[in-house]
Deep mutational scan, measured.
Amino acid sequence: FDIYVVTADYLPLGAEQDAITLREGQYVEVLDAAHPLRWLVRTKPTKSSPSRQGWVSPAYLDRRL
């Protein structure tokens, strides 16, 4: 999967189903980028939180090589 970094805090609107909150600087794996406005991502697990999966706007993501 492609690795992206979150460029700004992402707080989903209440109406968005299956969306997750992301923090600036967080790394995520993009699982599904087929839709231009919503990408399915999975967060990297940390010592304090397990990995999470949900939909985010790709405008908040920047690809890492």
Rank of each mutant, 00 (worst) to 15 (best):
G54R: 01
S51G: 09
T46G: 09
K47H: 12
R38N: 04
A15E: 15
L65T: 14
L13G: 13
Y27I: 15
L37G: 12
T21D: 10
R63L: 15
R38M: 11
G14C: 09
R38S: 07
L61M: 02
D9R: 05
L22K: 00
Q17K: 14
A8N: 08
L11M: 12
R52W: 12
L11K: 12
V28P: 00
V41A: 01
E24T: 12
V30K: 01
A34Y: 08
Y4I: 02
S57Y: 04
A8R: 14
L11N: 14
W55N: 02
T43P: 02
A15I: 12
V5G: 02
P36Q: 07
Y60E: 02
A33D: 09
V5A: 04
A33M: 14
A19M: 10
V56H: 00
W55F: 09
F1C: 08
G25Q: 02
W55C: 04
K44C: 12
Y27H: 10
D32L: 07
G14P: 15
L37D: 15
W39P: 00
Q26L: 04
Q53F: 07
P12I: 09
D18G: 14
A33E: 05
G25I: 02
R42L: 04
E29T: 08
G54C: 06
G54H: 05
R52Q: 14
A33L: 05
D62E: 15
L65N: 13
D62T: 14
S51D: 03
L31G: 01
V28S: 00
G54K: 01
P58V: 05
R63P: 10
D62H: 11
P58N: 03
P36F: 05
R63D: 07
G25K: 02
W55V: 03
D2C: 07
I20N: 02
H35S: 15
Y60N: 07
L22C: 02
A15Q: 14
D9I: 03
A33N: 14
D62C: 09
Y10I: 08
L22M: 04
A34R: 15
I3Y: 10
S49C: 09
D9M: 04
T21S: 14
Y60V: 11
T43Q: 02
R23S: 10
I3L: 11
V30D: 00
L37M: 11
D2S: 10
D18S: 08
D32H: 07
V5P: 01
K47V: 12
G14N: 13
V6W: 01
T21W: 15
W55A: 01
P58A: 06
T46Q: 07
K47G: 12
G14K: 11
A19D: 09
A33G: 10
P45I: 04
S49D: 13
L11T: 15
Y27L: 15
P50N: 06
I20C: 03
I20S: 02
S51K: 04
D9H: 06
S48P: 04
G54Q: 04
V56C: 06
G54P: 00
W39I: 01
D62N: 09
Y60H: 09
A8P: 03
A33Q: 12
L40N: 02
R42S: 04
L22T: 01
K47W: 11
A19G: 14
Y27M: 12
D9Y: 04
R52L: 14
R63A: 05
G25R: 02
A59K: 12
E16W: 10
L40H: 04
E29A: 06
T21H: 13
V5W: 07
K47Y: 11
A15W: 14
V28N: 00
P45A: 13
Y60K: 03
L61C: 02
Y4K: 01
A34M: 11
V30W: 00
S51A: 11
A19F: 12
E16T: 09
E29G: 02
D32S: 09
A33I: 06
D32Q: 07
T7K: 11
R42Q: 08
T21N: 09
A34P: 05
P58G: 02
A33V: 05
T46C: 07
V5C: 05
A19H: 14
Q17F: 13
P50L: 07
L61A: 00
V5N: 02
A33T: 10
R42V: 05
Y60P: 01
E16M: 10
L22Y: 01
F1W: 12
L13S: 15
T46P: 03
A19Y: 13
L13A: 13
P50E: 09
T46H: 08
S57V: 05
D32R: 04
V56D: 00
L11Q: 12
E29W: 15
G14L: 13
P45C: 08
S51Q: 09
P36C: 05
D2Q: 13
L40K: 04
A15S: 15
A34Q: 14
W55S: 02
Y27V: 13
L31H: 02
D9T: 06
T21V: 12
K44T: 13
P36V: 06
D62M: 12
I3H: 06
E24G: 07
V6F: 02
R52C: 05
A33P: 07
F1A: 09
I20W: 08
D62F: 08
G54E: 04
T7F: 04
A15F: 13
Q53R: 07
R52P: 02
K44N: 08
A34K: 12
V41K: 01
R38C: 08
K47T: 12
T7I: 15
D9Q: 05
D2G: 11
W55I: 03
L40D: 00
A15G: 15
S57I: 05
P36E: 09
Q26P: 00
Y60W: 06
F1Y: 14
E16R: 04
R64K: 13
R42H: 02
T7G: 04
P12L: 08
